[in-house]
Write a protein that binds this DNA or RNA. Sequence first.
RNA 1: CGGGGCGUAGCUCAGCCUGGUAGAGCGCCACGUUUGGGACGUGGAUGCCGGAGGUUCGAAUCCUCUCGCCCCGACCA
Length: 568
Amino acid sequence: MRVFQEQSRPGRSAGFQPALPAGILPAGKVVGETPATGADETSALREAAHRIRISNMAKNIKTRAEDYSQWYLDVIKAAQLADYSPVRGCMVIRPEGFAVWEAIQRDLDRRFKETGHVNAYFPLLIPMSFMTKEAQHVEGFAMECAVVTHHKLEQDGKGGLKAAGELEEPYIIRPTSETVIGHMYSQWIQSYRDLPVLINQWANVMRWEMRTRLFLRTSEFLWQEGHTAHETADEAEEETLRMLDVYADFAEEFLAVPVLKGPKTDSEKFPGAVTTYCIEALMQDGKALQAGTSHNLGQNFAKAFDIKFAGRDQKEQLAWTTSWGVSTRLIGALIMTHSDDEGLVLPPRVAPNVVAIVPIFKTDEEKAKVAAYIEKLAGVLCGEDEVAAAAKRLKSGDLTRYFFDKVTGQAVVVDWRDNRPGDKQFHWEQRGVPFRIEVGPRDVDGEAMVVKRRLDRSKEVVKLADVSADWLRAKLEGVQSEMLEKARQYRDANSHTAATYDELKSTLKDKGGFVRCFFQPDAEAEKKIKEETKATVRCLPFDGKGKTGKCIFSGKEGAPEAIFAVAY
RNA sequence: CGGGGCGUAGCUCAGCCUGGUAGAGCGCCACGUUUGGGACGUGGAUGCCGGAGGUUCGAAUCCUCUCGCCCCGACCA
């Protein structure tokens, strides 16, 4: 345990305090080396005792090296993104986590509208018979459907309740909505003039999972599902790829998560799809995460649900449909791409709070002085009218929230809680707030402030005269692009190639990450490879399109490039 | 769903082997001293010992069953 503390927690024990005599208590070491004698002895001892206390303090986040899975759960817990619920496999998304989802919704929804889509809502419950209409679809989802069989409760005579009023036809809780939506589309679409239909829905879905993990795989999750119907196969394919690009751009520009794009192999595609395209991201433990999918459903669902229209040639034709979705899993991707051993790190565009201001004072006079200065600072950053508006708002705890961006709701928060400044630093650090600004009496006197960056935990002193809303925006954008760049570098450093199956095996085993090689997709071969390496084909990457070579498994020429990785 | 581990205060855990009616640290509340990277003192609150049966005069402790969580597999966004 201590080993990891030593290597991973520089800020906790060094760097922000007056230097100690050399040799005294490097981080994490306990007693042993005794302090020097002399004039400094008392303060050195006090300091040393302080360090021992801190280094021994129960740490609430395990390091990534120590236990990656636990680290992930600890980060979520420390940042209060989500909590377990009394319902098996289902989580509660807490306000801090939901704010991230709202940010994702806001930006994605804008992109959907910009590409011509509209929102609608379809029911949670789906007639069970609908599930049987598309053979592949049933096969894929039957095993994980929750089934509603009754419509009321009755006294059971023993002080409890029992299900009653059995339904003639059970409903299933939607695991996805292709079926109900297909049913409705068959009624809405009469003519080629009705096409394309470009609908998205924001909803929850349920898939009864054997093994769940917060955000990455829960039985109930939130997502968006786009469902479109087109006149021609080409249009459907175009739409499928368009939305894949929307996802990829969104992931990189908004979440700062670099992704690979490409089609899935047949064995990995969506049940009922002709082609499934995906975006794949690489997590810090070297495992891949499918972050979004876009499916070309061909005429499969049109056949199953009778989505027909009168074509330009006066003849009846089947529509071509697509569907595409991303889920709260993106929050998992976000966490595992950017966060560090200190906790959550949020890209500025996603962060609900962009700045946390930590006031420092001893006396009431100092507090008043600092408060006045902070109000001035808030005015500079968020506007005078916002400062006035904030004064009238209900507050939660002793936090004052000033909206920095009224459209996104992103705020500058001032932490007036009756805690020590150090507590507050850790508090906001663990929550991933991009910047913290420390304001104490010395700063007021010097018309300055200490600005600390979450990303690299660096700090600088900034003059109040240099601060403005634009200044902050520029800082935030700087962090945003650095985060994407950093994630790209990590991804690239963990992307390898393999020329032979042996090489694939050893690379996966020794290095992890993405491994690129020539491979002819084949269900049997993929199964075998998965058994032997735990890795699957993540996609046939677009950036390797056109290239062919000798298949690492079959040895045949003409195989396309594939990316293998162990996946979540 | 198979294998392994764990459920005791808000959190981390001790107590269980060898039954006698519940503890520590952290957190929380109050007051005081503090406050530029997790403060200290004093006082205080908090538990159906995951749940249900059983054995026993007596169960956190022993037995059976169940539920939940974590890890590893199979399945999946």
